[in-house]
Design a protein around this nucleic acid. Structure first.
Lengths: 334, 334
DNA sequence: ATACAGCAGGTAAACGTTTTCCCATGAGGT
DNA sequence: ACCTCATGGGAAAACGTTTACCTGCTGTAT
């Protein structure tokens, strides 16, 4: 592999018979220098090659032009879409992003917090993480913005999220309008999950349409995964709980429910109607295609990045809580 | 946000009445120091807090404990799965990973190469990138390992890939055994794409089973996306090309083909049989569920990471070309 | 008593920048 | 002819580590 090593400022300086200070000045185009020294330096750089050593620069200026994004599961298209947009936005602003996949494991998350801190990231985006964020792992005061879930600390951390309450309401209403009376809701057990607000929407929709809220119809699960959802729904069916609609609080849960229903020979949407949340491709291409609540993943990522960079640059004047609209996308399961 | 700033080595040293050298020595547990100084230093660290400043350390030891992974599209579950495993393995070995999503755009890729280089990454994993990798963007000699595609440079870059030839063969054979005579293959136009070997498998399977290779049945597309695939298949159908089987060289293409076939009222698998490649969830949950060739994404990521870390640590003794077995997973489309 | 080995730990350079502070030169004003 | 001042650019400190080299001490062998 043939690569010419790039010279350091010192070496460029020597070649030009100027001091390192001068070279640095023309590189960064600040401070004063004459047109001719500028030309001389620029030519040397052009000819011999120079590339900023960011780690030295970072050490000196105390910022690294990189951020970390902490995410529970990058394999989930919902998170991947958000991360993609974060990466994209940050790239355009000159920042690199460390990807930190936690599976919601507290230990891993803590370890990452420490390591990112040590590596001097300028900020952190925290997507749908644990309810308690172990900030004591941090030693520096780093800007943080959360997506999709506000951690349980009464601090002024910025958060951007979808209108989960409205989403929950819309979903439930859709099922009700499709004729459902007994609507199962499957949601995350955690207290600070976005599912909480979706559940609130569910409650209020029931109330508005004069349907009773039945305890046996609200199902909490620990991991909002396909497998758990499928299993859970199976056990509900086996327990002979009566229901004619399912509100799954994300699309993977919906898919798990769908498969389970199929396996128990319950027809969707004829016997049971089903709605998901997020609107990832799996919902569109499953069979039957799953009706769901659309979240604007692109904007989620974009707004979070924008907010973070403003925080980093101390530009201020930013809303600390951004909530984005959701919309219903009707497909075949309702 | 209440965070105690962590002290630097110098400050710890002052507190202990020892030199920075000594503190550094006990932190890194090398060099010589007495039990009691060790205790003193450790206690101070415990009490007042110290955390390595990695950027200073990196500058000094000339390694950053971070790598970059360059990937065309993180939203594609195939890539996400690989990245997940890379992240996981690297984390366990103390490395962080920069995520670089390129969309295969040459400019972005080059920019990333430069920036990663400047940030001092210790290595690079390059997933299914462009056929020419612009190494001239690099100034340092960085270990690189490629996944899924060997760039068009005759260098000793390590590569880990699936047995694409065999995959192509298996897929084609499956269609043939299911009774197909005219098998459309939809593949990436690029010369160095893994699709090339899959195509070779296709050719040899046809030959083995005495089927003619018809030019109008091999379709090249530029972007191996759902949309392009769908459009392409539609246009093929409209051109009245006769075919009774489709070998899509990845699952998204397969899905695009499937949807297009449905829209043209061609029944799968009755009128046309279909097979994909990769085995991502979309293939499993689409309707009908798509038969596909399984790639071991986890191992792809793991082997690549392992190889890279060995390269970084100059451990050598590693095979430069790792090829992993594939397997057929039969579902409803054949 | 002298020499020497071995150990603990200090000094300072180095990694590659940025930036503060300073100096020298020359131009313009009196 | 002298003072002032702007301008270009150099010297050096600083960011927080690691490490090569050196020093001083204690204990043992001669």
């Amino acid at each position: 592999m043939e690569t010419k090593r790039s010279l350091s400022i010192k070496e460029i300086a020597k070649l030009c018979n100027v001091s390192v200070a001068t070279v640095s000045r023309v590189i960064n185009q600040n401070g004063r220098f004459s047109k001719e020294t500028e030309k001389k330096v620029l030519e040397a750089i052009e000819k011999f090659g120079y590339k900023t050593n960011m780690v030295a620069k970072s050490l000196r200026i105390q910022e690294s032009k990189s951020i970390g994004v902490i995410v529970p599961d990058i394999k989930n298209e919902f998170f991947a879409s958000i991360v993609l947009e974060i990466e994209n936005y940050c790239f355009s602003e000159g920042y690199s992003v460390f990807i930190c996949n936690t599976n919601k494991e507290e230990e891993k998350e803590k370890a990452y917090l420490k390591s990112l801190d040590a590596k001097g990231v300028d900020g952190l985006i925290y997507i749908s993480g644990r309810e308690t964020i172990s900030l004591d792992a941090l030693q520096r005061e780093i800007p943080i913005v959360c997506i999709d879930r506000k951690p349980d600390i009464d601090t002024n951390i910025a958060i951007v999220e979808s209108d989960n309450y409205r989403g929950g309401f819309l979903a439930t209403e859709e099922l009700i309008k499709a004729g459902c009376k007994d609507i199962l809701i499957i949601k995350n057990r955690r207290k600070f999950s976005p599912a909480r607000l979706r559940y609130k929407g569910y409650q209020e929709a029931l109330e508005l349409y004069d349907l009773p809220l039945k305890d046996e119809l609200v199902i909490d699960i620990d991991q909002t995964t396909f497998e758990q959802a499928k299993e859970t729904v199976s056990s509900v069916i086996k327990r002979r709980v009566k229901f004619d609609g399912v509100f799954a609080t994300n699309d993977w849960i919906a898919l798990g429910a769908l498969i389970s229903l199929k396996e128990h020979h319950l027809k969707v949407p004829d016997n049971v109607k089903l709605i998901g949340f997020d609107n990832i491709s799996i919902a569109k291409y499953s069979y039957p295609a799953i009706t769901t609540v659309h979240q604007d993943k692109k904007r989620l990522g974009e707004e979070a990045s924008r907010a973070l960079l403003r925080l980093i640059r101390k530009e201020g004047g930013e809303k600390l809580n951004i909530v984005l609209p959701v919309s219903l996308v009707k497909r075949q399961t309702t």
